[in-house]
Design a binder for these strands. Structure first.
Length: 1123
RNA sequence: GCUCAAGUGGCGGAAUUGGUAGACGCGCUGGAUUCAAAAUCCAGUUUUUUCGGAAGUGCGGGUUCGAUUCCCGCCUUGAGUACCA
């Protein structure tokens, strides 16, 4: 009986589908399988976008790996959830629709059918009963629902989580917005509770919009005119659109945004507790871009500014303070032990200066001071602290020594119910200055090196401060900058440009005048759009100063800055900086911030690069928003009425008026009374309102699909609580690294939000993530000879004739090794065959042009099927071409490139499955190399795993059918089996699938050599191999008489006793170089080994009479003789 | 520029608490079988060699009895990212 992969695979794929073998059971569902008692394991692949091209062999790589792991976990007794679905909204289907008029839903449906067929052929253990499609209204109903939840939430920095907007409204009603510590729009005006109540409904809504986690605002967006839509930052690569490479410009539009910036710190912190690849974590860290520094406010010269006259704390005083902090009294120490563990919003500091007072403890976020009573100036202190907005709690030494817990309770109460509340004050500054320039800096320690300031040309202050004389130049510069696209500005980093505004700022410490410039090296949308320039410490500032001849004061001790700025910070000592002089970076940084805070013109701040994510797209094929507009204010449609289904349109293009495609829909208005979508004609009615015309971006649906799989068919809720609590999170997530700053960041953001709202039980959705490497194609090249008449030669009629005679010629790779040789070979051939007149030989030059040849025409020895090549329709022109062979073969050149149609190197998995079977494909994809690594595909290699499968089959089956005996296995056979169990289990746990395929090959080679046919060995071996090659193992499993699928058979247990050895072939090395081996019993002592080795004649020969200096013996491992 | 990852036969790759470098497979060479081919089986395949050996994991150094593995410097390739103050 021969191994017939086709028959076997078809049968078992049908069996699995008919029996729903891989359907995962939820705990609530009644189950005859008893799966709910098993521990759960959730294995997920990043679901694919079903493109028209179908799958190539690179796509299933990750799916095969996750499938092996899922199957392994089933053998190990887990209840495994392994679902699959489609990210089916997207641009390609829409663009196809624009070109052909075909509805994207239709194209998508057809593509999904193709994908499903291809996937089914590979034998995945997906639970298809849980399939999701993001474009299915039953699915996007819940995407819309999540959007509404975001709209109805705000981010409370005090509790550090998202809260219902109702809590915010009740605060507004009670005390206005002064006490609210929220992540919100930058420009929010303060108002009292009375003012809030006096606002109209629309005004109130406009204010709330500034706090909501998804909000509508006029934002500068990346507009791509060719695609007719906005793009998110991560959809732009090198200044052009990721899809299609079209130019992108900045444009102001009213857009929905997601307040992801509220989660910047938590997204960063969360990375520590998830097992994701380091490079991916690095790129998320980079993208979030946390930088620690200070906000500093500079006054613009003009008013009658009064400088703060506060006495600054000298370095000595600071040191003394530090001393105080370390030497606490007994009571102080006891209390500090309790307070220091408080984190986050109630974090305490000890011995801190407030104004000119030193307080014992302070919780800055809660504006609460705790100090021991009995200080001389208590009355003055209380008054000052109250003025500054602090709540003071006084305690006594006795209280603490008696019961520190009581004191802590007292403090906690004070924190919860503060009597005085601080008014969030802007940087307090000398009020007389007309304008201030706020800057963010990561190097407040270098503030004495400031010699000028630079504003972004777009900075709103520019027009206000520019002086008469400079107005013309400044305006011209702004105009010139605006004309340049973002891309030009980015590409052109080297050119230094800028204009002096004529205005001066005052250095906050020294009061010295510094020039204010504008320059396009300062970006309007990062930080405050302005920088304090420290030319000696920043290369860009340095270049700018050099170019415009501005002073470059040196504030670094012993550093030469005549050539370049000094950007290092460790080990540098600050000089010429007043109270900072003589300090190292770290201390100077702290002290500078300390002084700024004390004097009120600056404060320590953490800045993030992460911007809020624009959530509107001017496209058709995406989720519609559950939003209508009343009085220009967005209104959410009640969740009862979801989904709001995508309307039909005639054309998928924007309207003539420039509205998104949904602007073409004729039935796209919301009847607020009838609670349904109605015809636009009814918009005249007072209760009918226009619906949102934008759709959601591609990442909306993919930001939560992993939760939906847990309870995919639930019509009542997003997923039931029991299901969410049971499956919790993805245990293993496999997919490409290209989603690092897109999908994987947004999904983490939504998960954290859903967690805050108590909807999901965990705040990170995937415990472990693996990025599979790309499979590259191995392109094949043929080399065409092209003849030219050399430059400088007279071109006359005869030259044309010379070239006309030369035929199209392809030269086999084994004919030449260099371009020169190529030319010689071709010329010799042409001369030989009379295609070239020897008189003109020197006039003609031959060059080599490599052309892609279809890889399917090349065999495993790189030999091209020339006849088939000529027959290909695309090679019409080469029908009569001459192929210059060698040894009767045409050998192609090879090069590794990305798989793509245009390179003719795409391999379709269907063809591989047809010829070698799904099991061979699965084994081969794993055998190619480590999962995470990029590696080239070469179809010829598959013969190795294919013949392995045939050999494997032969262990069980001979000409007459199954030939497995019940005899006891030999020691050798058991050793092979257990060696294999151990290695394979370790490999799967470590995701080292390539090495376990090698292990299987070794096992089969050994068992074949031993002529093993014992069931005792062969039955467990089937289970071991079944995750990798499920079809052949199912077939043999049933042939052995089993009635159930192999998929839940117990994984064989490793028993170390089968691997125990009595002797070891010791490698004997001399000075670390292995020379020969000696077999010795393993139970010898060190001395016995040494004696035996030194007595051996090979050792004596090697030593050649020289006495060994030292003998190193590691029993069971190695012997090393030093001579 | 910065950050990260990786450099091992003709090719994909294996080997890490530092202990026999090149497992396994492809390709190649020779042989068996066959009228022939495919398939299958057997042997060989890092380099060099005076057939005893010797050298060898990108390059240079270091630590060690012993380094593909650890440390320092450099080179190359790949990926990500960038006027981020």
């Amino acid at each position: 009986m021969q191994y017939n992969h086709k028959e076997i695979e078809e049968n078992w794929q049908k069996f699995w589908a008919d029996n729903q073998t891989f359907k995962a059971t939820n705990p609530a569902q009644s189950s005859d399988k008893g799966d709910a008692d098993k521990p759960k394991y959730y294995v997920l692949d990043m679901f694919p976008y079903p493109s028209g091209a179908g799958l190539h062999v690179g796509h299933p790589l990750g799916y095969i790996a996750s499938d092996i792991y899922a199957r392994y976990k089933r053998h190990k007794g887990f209840n495994v959830l392994h679902p699959q679905g489609y990210d089916s909204f997207g641009l390609p289907a829409e663009q196809y629709a624009i070109q052909t008029g075909q509805h994207p839903a239709k194209t998508t449906e057809a593509n999904i059918t193709t994908y499903r067929k291809q996937l089914d052929k590979i034998g995945f253990s997906f639970d298809w009963s849980r399939e999701v499609r993001t474009s299915d209204p039953a699915y996007y109903k819940w995407t819309q629902w999540i959007f509404i939840q975001l709209f109805n939430s705000w981010y409370n920095k005090d509790t550090d989580k998202a809260e219902d907007i109702a809590t915010l409204i009740s605060i507004f009603k009670k005390e206005g917005n002064a006490t609210v510590n929220a992540v919100a729009d930058a420009e929010i005006k303060p108002f009292s509770s009375e003012a809030w109540k006096a606002f109209s409904k629309t005004e109130q809504e406009a204010i709330l919009l500034q706090y909501r986690l998804t909000y509508l605002s006029d934002t500068e967006v990346n507009w791509c005119p060719v695609l007719g839509t906005v793009l998110a930052n991560d959809e732009i690569v090198n200044g052009v659109s990721e899809r299609g490479g079209h130019p992108v410009v900045r444009k102001k539009m009213t857009q929905w945004s997601m307040r992801i910036s509220a989660y910047a710190q938590r997204l960063l912190d969360g990375l520590e507790k998830i097992d994701w690849p380091q490079p991916l974590k690095d790129s998320q860290t980079n993208w979030i871009g946390r930088s620690q520094g200070a906000m500093v406010s500079f006054d613009v010269e003009g008013g009658t500014s009064k400088r703060s006259t506060d006495i600054k704390l000298s370095y000595k005083e600071l040191e003394a303070l530090k001393e105080l902090r370390l030497n606490l009294s007994k009571a102080e120490g006891i209390l500090w032990d309790e307070l220091k563990n408080k984190k986050g919003a109630a974090k305490f500091r000890k011995k801190y200066t407030i104004g000119s007072f030193l307080v014992d403890y302070v919780c800055l976020s809660k504006n609460t001071i705790v100090e021991f009573s009995g200080k001389e100036d208590e009355a003055a202190r209380t008054a000052f602290f109250a003025k500054e907005g602090f709540n003071v709690l006084r305690i006594t030494n006795e209280e603490v020594t008696e019961s520190v817990l009581k004191v802590v309770v007292k403090i906690n109460n004070a924190l919860q119910f503060p009597t005085v509340v601080k008014v969030e004050k802007p940087i307090a500054n000398s009020k007389s200055a007309t304008y201030k320039i706020d800057v963010f800096t990561t190097r407040p320690d270098t503030i004495f090196g400031v010699s000028f300031m630079t504003l972004a040309p777009e900075h709103p202050l520019v027009s206000k401060i520019v002086t008469g004389a400079q107005k013309k130049a400044v305006n011209a510069y702004i105009k010139a900058t605006a004309k340049r696209s973002e891309r030009e500005r980015m590409a052109d980093v080297k050119t230094i440009s800028g204009v002096f505004t004529g205005a001066y700022a005052l250095h906050p410490f020294t009061g010295k005048k510094v020039q204010i410039w504008i320059g396009d090296y300062v970006l309007a949308n990062y930080g405050t759009g302005a920088v304090m320039a420290v030319p000696c410490g920043d290369q860009r500032d340095y270049d700018f100063a050099k170019y415009f001849d501005i002073a470059i004061p040196n504030i670094f001790e012993g550093i030469d800055i005549s050539e370049a700025a000094h950007t290092g910070k460790e080990g540098t000592t600050i000089a010429n900086s007043d109270f900072l002089s003589g300090l190292k970076y770290k201390k100077a940084l702290k002290l500078a911030i300390f002084e700024m805070e004390k004097r009120g013109f600056g404060y320590g701040k953490i800045n993030y690069r992460l911007r809020d994510a624009v959530f509107s797209r001017q496209r058709y094929w995406g989720e519609p928003f559950p939003v209508y507009y009343k009085d220009g204010m967005p209104q959410m449609i009640d969740e009862k009425h979801l989904p709001i289904v995508l309307p039909e349109v005639e054309k998928y293009l924007p309207t003539e008026a420039g509205e998104p495609p949904l602007g073409r829909a004729t039935t796209w208005a919301w009847d607020s009374r009838g609670k349904k979508v109605v015809s636009n004609e009814k918009l005249k009615n007072k209760t009918v309102f226009p619906l949102e015309l934008n759709t959601m971006p591609g990442w909306a649906g993919s930001s939560w699909y992993f939760n939906r799989y847990m309870d995919a068919t639930n019509g009542g809720v997003f997923a039931s609580k029991e299901s969410l609590d049971y499956w919790k999170e993805v245990d293993l997530y496999i997919g490409g690294s290209e989603h690092a700053t897109g999908h994987l960041l947004y999904a983490r953001f939504w998960q954290k939000f859903l967690f805050d709202k108590g909807i999901v039980p965990v705040d990170e959705f995937a415990k472990k993530l693996i990025n599979q490497g790309m499979i590259l194609g191995t392109s094949a090249f043929v080399y065409r000879a092209t003849a030219f008449v050399k430059n400088g030669c007279d071109i006359d009629k005869s030259n044309d004739d010379v070239l006309a005679k030369i035929p199209i010629l392809f030269v086999s790779k084994n004919n030449f090794s260099s371009d020169a040789e190529f030319e010689t070979v071709v010329k010799n051939y042409l001369l030989d065959k009379g295609f070239l007149n020897p008189n003109f030989a020197d006039l003609v030059m031959i060059t080599k042009t490599p052309l892609h040849a279809d890889v399917s025409l090349v065999n495993s020895s790189d030999e091209l099927d020339v006849e088939a090549f000529k027959k290909q329709p695309i090679n019409q022109d080469y029908k009569k071409a001459i192929f210059l062979l060698k040894d009767g073969k045409y050998i192609v050149g090879r090069e590794v490139e990305k798989m793509s149609k245009s390179k003719y190197n795409v391999v379709n998995p269907d063809d591989i499955v047809e010829e070698y079977g799904a099991d061979a494909l699965r084994l081969f994809e794993m055998f190619l190399g480590p999962l995470e690594q990029a590696k080239p595909w070469k179809t010829s290699g598959i013969s190795g795993v294919y013949s392995f499968l045939k050999k494997f089959w032969k262990l069980y089956v001979d000409e007459n059918g199954v030939a497995v005996s019940d005899e006891k296995a030999t020691k050798e056979e058991l050793k092979t089996l257990h060696k294999t169990i151990k290695k394979v289990a370790e490999d799967i746990e470590n995701f080292s699938f390539n090495t376990s395929v090698a292990t299987f090959m070794i096992a089969v080679n050994e068992l074949t050599a031993l002529k093993c046919n014992k069931k005792e060995v062969l039955a467990p071996l089937l289970v071991l191999l079944s995750p990798y090659a499920p079809h052949i193992t199912e077939e043999l499993w049933s042939k052995l008489g089993n009635k159930e699928s192999i998929s839940t058979a117990d994984f064989p247990v490793f028993d170390a006793k089968h691997l125990v050895e009595s002797a070891k072939k010791y490698p004997i090395s001399f000075n670390g170089k292995m020379r020969f081996t000696i077999e010795l019993p393993l139970d010898l002592s060190k001395d016995e080994i040494e004696a035996a080795v030194l007595a051996d004649e090979k050792t004596i020969a090697q030593l050649a009479g020289v006495a060994p200096k030292k003998v190193i013996i590691v029993p069971g491992k190695i012997v090393n003789i030093v001579s």
